[in-house]
Design a protein around this nucleic acid. Structure first.
Lengths: 335, 335
DNA sequence: GTGAAAGCGCTAACAC
DNA sequence: GTGTTAGCGCTTTCAC
C-alpha cells in the first residue's frame, strides 16, 4: 500500500529539521527565504500533502462540518448542499451529509454520530417530526457551533438563514386574490416546522389585508410533510369536497406539491383549480396539471449558511451577536 | 469549549493504566472481567467516545469513504447514496460526497481532494466528460481501494456494479417493437460512458433480432448528458424532422428524458410518439407528455457497491478476484 | 534562522 | 492481568 510522504521525509532529504519544514510549509516568517523556497519546491515535487489525522489530533479541529437535511433527493436540499460545498471545499473543509428522512429518531442518532465524529460545526435543517430539541440544545450548550437554515429553531440563539416565508406566502396568496380567486385553500406542512407557521401566517395576512375571512375548512396540515401520499390525497379530497369548494390552492412544500398533483390526476373536474406551490424541482414546469411555483434561493442559502458557520468556527472569541438572514423567493406563474 | 473525555481520564479516575482501559474498551480477553466491567461502566457514565483523529493517526485509516457522482440532485444518484449510507454508517464509516457535475476538471480535483483527505476507499461513477483515466489509474495503482458503480471503467480491474444496461435497453426496445413500432429513435448519452455503449448495443441487438435494420439517422448522442438543454432540443428537432420520421423514442438517461420532454412541449404533432426513457425520478409519472420508464435499482446498487468496497478495505490480504455485478432494471409502461 | 523536545489520544510490543 | 514505553505526523514552545 502507498505510503504518503511526511514532513520528516522532507526534513531528512533536505537535511533540515522537521520544525523548519513545518514552518516553511506554513509560510512562517521565521524561516530563511532560501530554506523556504527549497522546502516548498521539494514538497511540490514529491507531491507532499499534510496528514489530516495528525493535524486534527494536534489542533483539536477536524476540518469537517456536518450537514443535517431531511433528504438529499429533495431538489431544494440538493441545491442547498451544492451551495454549501461550493464554499466549504474552497475553505478547506469537507462536508459530511446526513439525512433525517424527517424522522426524529434518525435526527437524534445522526447528530450524535456527527458530534462523535467530532465535526467542527453543524448545519441543520430540522426534521418535520421533531418537537423535542434536547439533542440540539445539548450540543449547542457544549459549545458546538451550529447554524440553522431553512427549517430553523427560534429557541436556540445562533446564526440562521431561511427564506422570507411570510412574505413569499403573502405575495403568492395576494397575487391569487388579485387574479380574482377568493376561495383559496392552503395545504400546509407539519405544524411544528418554523416554515409552516411563517407560510401560514403570510397566507392569513394576505387574506386579512384583502378582507377575505380565513376559513378553517380550507386549511389542511400534512403531518408527514408529504411523505405519506395517502395523507395528502385525503387532504386534497376532503378539501375539494368541502361545502365552500376552493377555486385556488396554495401548497406549502415541494413534496406536498407533487403528492397533491398525483392526487389531482385521479380527480375529475379539478381543471379550473389554480395551483401554486413552493417548489425547487427542475421539472415542475413539466408537470400536469400545471402548477405555478415559488422558487427559493437554495444555492445562495447554502452559501450563506456555511459562511456563517465558518465565521463561528474560526472566531477567536465567543460570538454573542447573531443574525437571522431572510432571502427573497421568486414566483413563477404558469398557464 | 467542551472537551471530550480521553482514555487517560478514565485511567486516572479508576487508577489503572491507559493500556488497560484501551484493552477493556476494545473488549480484549487479556483484561480481568471485573476491570473490564468497571471501565465499560465508567466510560458509559461519562459518555466517553474515542477520538477519531487519534485513531486515524495510529491506524492509518480514516474510517471515511469518498463518493464521486455526477450530481446529488439526480434521483438515481441520491437513491444510490441512500443505499451507500444505509450500510456505511452501520459499519462505522462516514461518507464524503463529491459531485463532478459531469466535468472532467472537477472530477480530477475532487478525487485529488478525497485522496488527500485520506479516505479509505472510493466509490466512483464516472463523469460524462472524462476520456482520460490517468487520475483514477494513479490512485488505483497506489493501492487505494476503488469500486465503480453505474458508469464503470472496464480498463481498471476491481469490483464493479451496474445495471444490466444491455438487457434493459434490449427489453425496452423489443417491447416497443412488439407493440408495433418500427421507426424507433434513440437519444443516447455521452459516447465515452460505459452505460451509453451498453444501452446502445442493447437497442441495436433488439432491432437486429427483429429484422429491423439499424438506421443511423434515428440515433443522436447528447455529449453533455442532457445538461445542455439546447443540445437535446436540437437532437429532438433534427430527429423528428428526418425523412424517416420515428414513431417511437428510446431515451438513455433521466436528464436527457426531462430535457427531451421539455423540447417536445414546444413541438406540435409529436403526440403519437411513444416514449420510453431511463428514469428514477419520483415524478416521472406526472410528466406531460407521458413517458414510459425504465427504473434502475439504485438503492440496492449503492448497498452492493459499499459492501464491495468495505470488503476490499478490510481484507487482510490483497484481493485479486473481482466481480462485476449486473442488476436488473424494471420497465413501467404508461398511457 | 534553526533545532530539540514534548505532546495531542490512542494502541501494540514488551516487560513483569 | 496489568503497566511501561514508544510512536503514528504534526506544531509549538524554548533554547541557542
Amino acid at each position: 500500500m502507498y505510503k504518503a510522504a511526511t514532513i520528516k521525509d522532507i526534513a531528512r532529504a533536505l537535511d533540515v529539521s522537521p520544525s523548519t519544514v513545518s514552518r516553511a510549509l506554513r509560510d512562517s516568517h521565521e524561516v530563511g527565504t532560501e530554506t523556504k523556497q527549497k522546502v516548498l519546491e521539494y514538497a511540490r515535487q514529491i507531491n507532499y500533502h499534510y496528514n489530516p489525522a495528525a493535524l486534527s489530533l494536534r489542533s483539536r479541529r477536524s476540518y469537517s462540518i456536518g450537514i443535517m437535511v431531511a433528504d438529499v433527493a429533495n431538489s431544494f436540499f440538493s441545491q442547498t448542499i451544492n451551495g454549501i460545498e461550493s464554499i466549504a471545499y474552497e475553505r478547506g473543509y469537507n462536508v459530511i451529509i446526513t439525512q433525517s428522512h424527517d424522522s426524529y429518531e434518525r435526527e437524534v442518532i445522526n447528530m450524535e454520530h456527527l458530534a462523535n465524529r467530532s465535526v467542527d460545526g453543524l448545519l441543520i435543517s430540522m426534521s418535520a417530526q421533531t418537537v423535542d430539541y434536547a439533542h440540539v440544545t445539548r450540543l449547542h450548550e457544549q459549545g458546538l457551533p451550529i447554524v440553522f437554515f431553512d427549517r430553523i429553531l427560534s429557541d436556540i440563539d445562533t446564526f440562521k438563514v431561511t427564506t422570507d416565508n411570510f412574505r413569499s406566502a403573502y405575495n403568492a396568496t395576494e397575487a391569487l386574490i388579485k387574479k380574482g380567486y377568493r376561495n383559496i385553500a392552503h395545504l400546509a406542512n407539519a405544524p411544528q416546522l418554523s416554515i409552516t407557521t411563517e407560510r401560514l401566517n403570510g397566507y392569513k395576512a394576505a387574506l386579512a389585508d384583502n378582507d377575505i375571512p380565513f376559513n378553517e375548512n380550507l386549511l389542511r396540515h400534512c403531518y408527514n410533510g408529504g411523505r405519506d401520499e395517502q395523507e395528502v390525497e385525503q387532504a386534497v379530497n376532503s378539501i375539494l369536497s368541502a361545502a365552500d369548494k376552493p377555486d385556488a390552492l396554495f401548497i406549502a412544500s415541494d413534496r406536498i406539491s407533487t403528492a397533491c398533483i398525483r392526487a389531482l390526476n385521479q380527480i375529475k373536474g379539478a381543471d379550473e383549480l389554480a395551483i401554486i406551490g413552493f417548489s425547487n424541482s427542475d421539472v415542475v414546469d413539466l408537470l400536469s396539471p400545471r402548477i405555478s411555483y415559488i422558487r427559493q434561493r437554495a444555492f445562495e442559502m447554502g452559501q450563506i449558511a456555511i459562511e456563517m458557520l465558518i465565521k463561528l468556527i474560526e472566531s477567536k472569541y465567543p460570538v454573542y451577536e447573531f443574525e437571522t438572514k431572510l432571502l427573497e423567493a421568486e414566483v413563477y406563474w404558469q398557464k
